[in-house]
């Protein structure tokens, strides 16, 4: 049993409960123990890149530090949380001034300066379990299902901080799909932004961008799109005019591992 400190984030508690539930169930099947810290706060959804403020970064530092205190790596599922926490961790270990300010403010018993290793759930599958081992545990392979992975913008960029995969030619989701028995569909728009970020300001963007992504995936013959991001999920379902299912990657993982009644929550 390997222990991880698990950060679900705000949306996994509300609109994306299935993303969360499946992640937990699958972790248990795969021998991963997820420990959720009692007092986590919302990460804010977007990382403030500005070097002159720390307030927006503190909740991420707190959870990073609680993982450090527990002696665990930190794991995230939601793309946005992943992005915010990894960028925070990167900046705090590369920007001495920011690190100093944050620590002076938080007054932790021991300074936090980027010690925690952060995994996205997919990285855990790739680097801790191994896709080959994952494949061995698959009970109901998604045979013949052509799945288009949608990375979006948050999962891979900026590459320096996220350091997860090649941001222009990623393979982690494709290899994940292969491991659960599906056929990955490679399409060029898989790492482009769906535009949902500005939905309150400019809905037009969200509609146009998501339509382009769905079209690109469908054109290449996809039966299904998978994502790790609740906001992308919402946008692709609501605004793209997409007529193929859009699902969380943890849902298809759960199905492949033989979990019953996946996806009935929404």
């Amino acid at each position: 049993m390997k222990n991880f400190t698990y950060y679900p984030g705000c949306t996994l508690r509300t609109k994306a409960k299935e993303l969360d539930r499946c992640a937990r169930v699958c972790a248990e099947i795969l021998g991963i123990n997820l420990e959720e810290p009692a007092d986590w706060q919302c990460c804010g959804g977007a990382y403030t890149t500005a070097k002159d403020e720390i307030a927006t970064k503190l909740s991420a530092v707190r959870v990073l530090n609680s993982a450090k205190e527990a002696g665990n790596p930190l794991i995230t599922v939601c793309s946005a949380c992943h992005n915010v926490i990894k960028q925070t961790n990167y900046d705090i270990s590369h920007d001495d001034e920011m690190c100093g300010k944050v620590n002076r403010y938080l007054g932790l018993s021991e300074n936090y300066s980027g010690e925690t290793i952060v995994y996205h759930y997919l990285e855990m599958l790739r680097d801790v379990i191994g896709f080959e081992n994952l494949a061995k545990q698959v009970k109901k392979p998604l045979k013949g299902v052509k799945i288009a992975p949608y990375y979006g913008c948050l999962l891979l960029r900026p590459k320096k901080a996220l350091a997860m995969d090649d941001p222009e030619n990623p393979s982690i989701m494709e290899n994940f799909i292969k491991a659960i028995g599906g056929t990955p569909v490679v399409y060029a728009q898989r790492n482009e932004c769906c535009g949902a970020y500005t939905i309150f300001e400019d809905k037009n963007q969200a509609v146009e961008r998501s339509a382009k992504i769905a079209e690109s995936a469908r054109e290449m013959g996809a039966d299904m799109i998978i994502t790790a991001c609740p906001l992308c999920m919402y946008n692709l379902k609501k605004n793209s005019g997409c007529d193929i299912p859009v699902r969380y990657f943890t849902e298809v993982l759960a199905e492949a591992l033989g979990v019953e009644e996946v996806g009935n929550e929404q």
Binding site: C10, T11, T56, I199, L231
Partner: peptide, 14 residues
């Protein structure tokens, strides 16, 4: 259907 993420992000950005 709108996820919380959309709201917190907007507040942070705007």
């Amino acid at each position: 259907d709108m996820p919380q993420q959309a709201i917190v992000t907007a507040l942070r950005k705007y």
